[in-house]
Amino acid sequence: MRYVRILALHIQDVFQNRGRSFVYFLMGLLNPILQLVFWSGAIAEGGGNGALWTFREMASYYLLVTVVISFLVVHIEEDVAFLDIKEGLLAKYLLRPFSYFISKFMEELPWRMTHGFFAVVVFVAFMMWGRISFPLVGEPTRIALAVVITVGGLFISFILKMLFGLLALWTTDFWGIWGVEEVVFWLLAGIIMPLSYYPSALAAVAYALPFSYIVYFPVIAVQGSLADIEMIRVIGSQLIWILALSMLYRIVWKKGIEKFTAVGQ
């Protein structure tokens, strides 16, 4: 109950910032819409020939990418690096008898919930307005597996972004790392296009890295494009990533915190 009460307090804070939350959400909406426009043109130009997916499937993919990004793609690394480490706000957390990791998760979760809510509204509005029924996972067991994959994606996203943020403890200028991380993430998470469209070598790299388990696999799981056995395999891979990243986080945190100078505080 203690954690629920802390989360409820953080939700109140995000509610106060609902305007900012909506603007952030709109910024995230831009890319999927542009991609959708591009692909609708490309598929129409080709007369539908040669395309792996139909327009309906492609529209479903990009709208679900919007929903999944809103729910799962965490931006905590910016807070960790620029505010907590560079401006010294980490001192506030270190003085509390409460885990920094959990504090940040509690701060981030309400943002994901509000962005996700906005995205679901857009998704439903698009379906109703366009009178399109998108392919979505149907049976209860497969829905449950898709939910597990989605939650797994959130955990991977959070731990990974926390790790990236902590790199600011070793660097004077975090902007470079942040830029590279953004590009790699966009390329390998399946945000630009479905990974099945990638050349096989690049797709293999993307499947082997954790980014695809944050966006691509949750999207196609919710779409219903994964067989049962593939869903279980994805969950297994997510668990391995969560364990590996958690262990790495503990090491990085332990080493990094010795370098923290609480500058400006």
């Binding site: 009460r5 307090l9 804070d13 106060q16 001192a91 506030k92 008898p97 409460f98």
Partner: peptide
């Protein structure tokens, strides 16, 4: 212990101070 630094903020800016007190109540059990 407590460390108070002049002009450094731990209060939630957009809420009342009581909300921060309640957060600390939970954090410090």
């Amino acid at each position: 212990i407590a460390l108070v630094m002049g002009q450094k903020n731990q209060l939630w800016w957009d809420l009342t101070a009581v909300e921060t007190f309640l957060l600390n109540k939970e954090i410090y059990e």
